[in-house]
Amino acid sequence: MSAINVTATANPNAEPKAGTIVIGTDDTYPPDEYTNASGQLLGFDVDLGDALGQVLHKKVIWKPTAWDGIIPGLEANKYDAIISFMNVTPQREQQIQFIPYGTFGQVIVTKANSSAPITTLNDLKGKKVGVQIGTTSEDAVKKVGGAIIKEYNTFPDALNDLANGRINAVVVDESVGRYYMAKDPGVFKVAGQPFASEPVGIGLRKNETQLDQQLQQALNTLKQNGTYNKIYTYWFGAPSK
């Protein structure tokens, strides 16, 4: 179910062309972007991207892409932009440019019945911690030192291992952590408070001046007319700050 009256079209073989905008996304990241059991592409970023397309009068074509290849795919012209809840970091800004659209924190997720004293990053020392490879969550855990890091291709894989007791915790974006806590309240809980709030942004190739200006103006329109807050509230339960 979409927060707004838009239709997401997923076409892995599509190429950018006039009148369309092709967007790369990692569709394993609910509630931000995911493919449901019926094959529908859903999520906060999906609604946002489709709304941007409506403002620009362009057909949006979604191209699901594995996270570890999402920036190389953009650089190889497989799509026009990335909308995949990607944190804006200095390292990524060396490769691509960004249009920030929100600021979100990260959280530690543990089993709901866990008695381990885990509420902060320092509590992860000596613990088995799951992260998605190539994410800022992984970077945050590495900075702690002493944690036993287990890398996963997707966060659902990490959370599955957590549910089955193979690891002690998962570090993930707050939106994802709270989604899974609400989805499986007897299985997961968010431990402690959010940390390391960082901007997330639309990724573009360097020097894509025209598309950058178009998307920035469209984003401004969505924020001014209330559509952005409508999407945000639908997926996250509270207006954006």
Rank of each mutant, 00 (worst) to 15 (best):
F104S: 03
G43W: 05
Y79S: 09
D184V: 08
V60S: 13
G134S: 11
A116K: 01
P72F: 03
D139P: 06
N5Q: 11
T110W: 03
L124W: 00
D123V: 04
G19N: 14
E174L: 02
L52Q: 09
D32T: 10
Q214S: 09
S175T: 05
L219A: 05
F104L: 05
K150D: 08
K127Y: 03
Y228L: 00
P12W: 15
Q40Y: 15
G186F: 02
Y179G: 00
G201V: 02
M181D: 04
P199S: 13
K143L: 09
G165R: 06
V46I: 12
N207H: 12
S137K: 01
Q193V: 10
V170F: 05
K128W: 02
L48A: 03
L222W: 02
N207W: 03
L162Y: 01
A218P: 13
P31H: 11
S240G: 04
N36P: 11
V88S: 02
F44I: 03
Q97Y: 10
D32N: 11
Y152H: 06
T227E: 04
G39S: 14
T135Y: 08
E174Y: 04
Q40D: 15
Q217P: 07
V190N: 05
V88E: 05
P185D: 10
Y179I: 00
K143V: 08
K241D: 01
T25S: 13
T209L: 14
L41S: 11
K125C: 00
E208D: 15
N164H: 12
S197N: 10
A140E: 13
N207T: 06
P12H: 15
V129D: 09
Q40E: 15
V141Y: 03
A76D: 13
D173Q: 10
L42K: 15
P90F: 12
V190Q: 00
N207S: 08
L48K: 01
A163N: 10
Y180H: 03
A10Q: 13
Q94E: 11
T227P: 03
I4Q: 01
G49P: 07
A81H: 11
T119L: 09
T120N: 05
N113E: 12
G69S: 14
I148Y: 02
R178M: 02
D157V: 10
A191R: 04
T136M: 11
I70A: 05
N168V: 06
K183D: 07
N36R: 10
L52T: 10
D139Q: 14
I202N: 03
A238H: 12
I99K: 09
D47W: 06
